[in-house]
């Protein structure tokens, strides 16, 4: 078998071989071009979650409710629907947040997600603390860090009051780099 091949090889002329090698290279090149062309839409499809994200296009102003739903000097759980939804989201579009109304139109709207690792914090009005069930993060009523592992206070949504309604700008899961709003509050001389 091997002998046969060698005979064939010997019969082939060098010019013939180089022409085939050249054609093979053209073939490789053509496939390279095809792959590159195909890669562009594939990459575009893959990075689609990033498109517009840096300009904050996910965010919208959303109505949380009438001012009368939020009594002064209280912190209450409110729910809203995420501005961007899709058919397969189920209940995951329904996002909770903590609304603290101080006096008049003075609000703080906190994400429920702990600044440590995103677990939902719960409000305890008696002690005026938010507590996280996961790793023991605790926050004061103004959202500043009280104790535990969180590296900062609670994330806050920007808010405004229009026509007697409380609105927040929301639309993405707050993490340390995708903050609802970067607020770093320190307790200063508190203790």
């Amino acid at each position: 078998m091997i002998g046969d091949r060698e005979e064939v090889n010997e019969k082939q002329q060098t010019g013939d071989l180089s022409r085939r090698e050249w054609l093979t290279k053209i073939g490789l090149l053509l496939n390279g071009v095809a792959v590159t062309l195909l890669a562009m839409p594939i990459i575009g499809y893959l990075v689609s979650p990033l498109i517009g994200a840096d300009k904050g296009e996910y965010k919208r102003w959303i109505t949380l409710g009438n001012l009368s739903e939020f009594p002064e000097n209280q912190t209450r759980l409110a729910k809203f629907e995420n501005p961007i939804t899709s058919f397969a989201d189920g209940e995951t579009d329904h996002i909770p947040c903590w609304v603290r109304r101080m006096q008049g139109e003075n609000f703080q709207v906190f994400a429920v997600n702990c600044a440590h690792l995103g677990c939902p914090v719960r409000w305890f009005p008696q002690s005026g603390l938010f507590m996280c069930p996961c790793h023991g993060g605790v926050y004061y009523e103004d959202g500043s860090r009280a104790s535990g592992p969180p590296p900062r206070g609670l994330f806050e949504y920007p808010f405004k009051v229009e026509n007697g309604k409380l609105m927040i700008e929301a639309g993405q899961l707050p993490t340390l780099s995708t903050t609802a709003k970067l607020v770093t509050r320190s307790r200063g001389c508190q203790g």
Binding site: A53, N82, F87, T92, I95, Q172, L173, S177, T178
Partner: peptide, 20 residues
């Protein structure tokens, strides 16, 4: 960080695209 979060979740929040 922000880009990686959006890539991980397939969008701005945990939703249908994330599970898919």
């Amino acid at each position: 960080g922000a880009a990686a979060v959006h890539m991980l979740l397939g969008g701005p929040i945990i939703a249908g695209a994330t599970l898919s």
